[in-house]
Simulated assay, not measured.
Amino acid sequence: MANNENAAFRKHLVEVLTGGHAHATFEQAVKGLPAELQGKVPKGAEHSPWQLLEHLRLAQWDILDFSVNAKYQALKWPDDYWPKEKAPPDEKAWDKSVRVFKKDLKAMVALVEDEETDLFAKIPHGDGQTILREALLVADHNAYHVGQLVLVRKMLGAWG
C-alpha cells in the first residue's frame, strides 16, 4: 500500500473505531444517565445499563490485551465478560468504567495509527488474528452493545 493509501486506510479504521457516523457514539450512550437508572433492567430487556457498560469495557480490554500482550491469558466466557450485579457497586463506578473504556479505546486507536503497526501481520501468540481483525472486532462489538445501551435507555425513558 502506498503511504497516502496506508494513512487513509488507518484514518478510516480509526473513524470506524470511534463511531458516530451511522449510529450514536459511546460518549452519547453513556452521558447523563441518572444514577438511579444505571442498575435498572427495563421490562423486556436482559441487562441494565451498568451491565452493558461493564461488558463493553471488559470485552474491549480483553481484545486490546490480546492484541498487544504476548503473555495474554484468555478470560472465561461468559463469566469474565458480564458482571453479575445489575447496579454499579458504588457511586464512582460508572464514571470509572467510562474512563477506563475511553482509555482502552484510545490505546487501540493509537495502535492502529502507529505506522510501525503492521495491521495485516498475524499476531504471534494468536491463531491467525491480525491487528486489523482485532480493531474491526472492537468496532463491531462496541457498535452492537452501544446500540443495546441506547435501546435500554429508551426503554427506561432516559434517551433523547
Rank of each mutant, 00 (worst) to 15 (best):
A2T: 13
E5R: 13
A7F: 07
A8L: 11
F9N: 08
F9T: 13
R10L: 07
R10Y: 09
H12Q: 13
L13I: 11
L13F: 10
V14Q: 02
V14L: 10
E15M: 06
V16T: 07
V16S: 08
V16M: 10
L17M: 05
T18Q: 15
G19A: 11
H23D: 14
A24V: 03
F26E: 00
E27K: 09
Q28D: 12
A29D: 03
A29H: 02
P34M: 06
A35L: 08
E36S: 12
E36D: 15
Q38M: 06
K40I: 12
K40E: 14
K43G: 03
K43Q: 12
S48E: 03
Q51S: 01
Q51C: 02
L52Q: 02
H55L: 09
H55A: 10
H55D: 08
H55W: 09
L56W: 01
L56R: 00
R57L: 13
A59T: 15
A59W: 10
W61P: 00
L64D: 04
D65H: 09
F66P: 00
S67G: 12
V68D: 07
N69V: 06
Y72M: 06
L75N: 09
K76W: 01
W77D: 09
W77A: 10
D79Q: 13
D80G: 12
W82G: 00
W82P: 00
E85K: 11
K86C: 04
A87T: 11
P88A: 08
P89N: 06
E91C: 02
A93K: 03
V98Y: 05
V100N: 10
K102N: 14
K103A: 15
D104G: 11
L105D: 01
V109G: 04
L111N: 05
V112P: 00
V112M: 06
E116F: 03
E116A: 15
L119C: 08
K122G: 10
P124E: 09
G126A: 14
D127E: 14
D127P: 01
G128C: 08
T130E: 07
L132S: 08
R133S: 12
R133L: 11
L136S: 06
L136A: 09
L137T: 14
V138A: 02
A139N: 07
D140T: 13
H141L: 10
H141K: 06
H145W: 09
H145G: 06
V152R: 00
R153S: 07
K154T: 08
M155Q: 15
G160L: 08
